[in-house]
């Protein structure tokens, strides 16, 4: 499965479009990480726990999008965009969407 965020796959020809595919996850941080983040918050700097958490969830959202594209018979997703929104205190939604296509 080839993923790009431009309107084509460089070096390949698109033969069929399948429309929009998307995937999302809503994740909450867990207490341990939250406490560590609270401590880290005092001195500032990178909150590694959160970075990892968001990366994992984003990968999962992408996986779901890819699964949907595969179901439709595509072998690539183009024009991928990511969006993040916080739904409630301590929970975030990671959303990925793109256009499923079949390339040669």
């Amino acid at each position: 499965m080839i993923l790009t965020n431009i309107g084509s796959v460089p070096g390949k020809k698109i033969v069929e479009h399948f429309g929009i595919v998307s995937g999302s996850t809503v994740r909450a941080k867990h207490v341990g990480r939250d406490m560590m983040a609270g401590l880290k918050n005092l001195v500032g700097g990178e909150l590694k726990g959160y970075t990892e958490l968001l990366q994992e969830s984003r990968n999962e959202a992408t996986e779901r999008m890819v699964a949907q594209a595969r179901m439709l018979g595509g072998n690539a997703v183009i024009n991928i965009r990511f969006a993040t929104s916080s739904v409630a205190q301590g929970a975030a939604e990671l959303f990925a969407y793109g256009t499923a296509v079949r390339i040669e």
Partner: peptide
């Protein structure tokens, strides 16, 4: 892709 979460100090 790459991402980073950074916070400010007190």
């Amino acid at each position: 892709s790459g991402s980073a979460v950074i916070s400010v100090d007190y």
